[in-house]
């Protein structure tokens, strides 16, 4: 049996209200599921956010051989319930990086294996998805990432996987 003093109950209530308020203010606006599959397996990732740079969670790693046929699949669903987000960019790319888990996203001026983006107005429950076949011919570490830009919020969402190409 629990005995909660008056101070304790007030604190719990205050924390609950704070948590609800913060959560409401930071309403999520996108859910992104990302998968990459190759001949010997697949890796999956779900939604993360920036800031902080590189997100909150470590990335999964898929190890493949150079030249393996790979398939990237993603599905992004708008979960922002408060209206239309104008001119949102949904971007995906595979780009060479220095090390597994590197936090910074490189600019996409070089070492890009494949990339694409959509620009659209997103209403609640709008979706964007794609399936991209590609391969990586040069061994190294690569970042595969789907992210949002220009949502006019204090954070952006992404989903990412590292590819180790041997």
């Amino acid at each position: 049996m629990f005995h909660v003093c008056k101070w304790g109950a007030t604190t719990v209530l205050a924390i609950s209200i704070w948590a609800i308020t913060v959560q409401a203010a930071r309403a999520e606006h996108a859910k992104i599921d990302l998968t990459v599959s190759g001949p010997d397996g697949q890796a999956e990732a779900s939604t993360d956010e920036e800031p902080p740079v590189g997100g909150l969670y470590p990335r999964h790693v898929l190890t493949v051989k150079a030249g393996d046929p790979l398939v990237l699949r993603f599905l992004l669903t708008d979960e922002y319930p408060h209206g239309v987000l104008q001119d949102v960019t949904v971007r995906y790319f595979v780009v060479g990086i220095g090390a597994i888990g590197q936090k910074e996203t490189p600019n996409l001026q070089k070492n890009v294996v494949t990339q694409g983006h959509a620009v659209m107005n997103m209403k609640p429950k709008s979706s964007v998805g794609a399936m991209v076949r590609f391969r990586v011919d040069t061994p190294g570490i690569y970042l595969m990432r789907v992210d949002t830009l220009n949502t006019q919020r204090d954070h952006e969402h992404f989903s990412a996987i590292d590819l180790e190409v041997k």
């Binding site: 239309v84 959509a118 620009v119 659209m120 107005n121 209403k123 794609a130 399936m131 076949r133």
Partner: peptide
């Protein structure tokens, strides 16, 4: 034999548009 496939869904008011650009190999 599908090399690339994509889709999006949203509303379109008059003069509204959607764009998509991608690399294809």
């Amino acid at each position: 034999d599908v090399v690339y496939e994509g889709a999006l869904t949203t509303d379109f008011k008059p003069k509204e548009r959607a764009d998509w650009k991608f690399d294809l190999k």
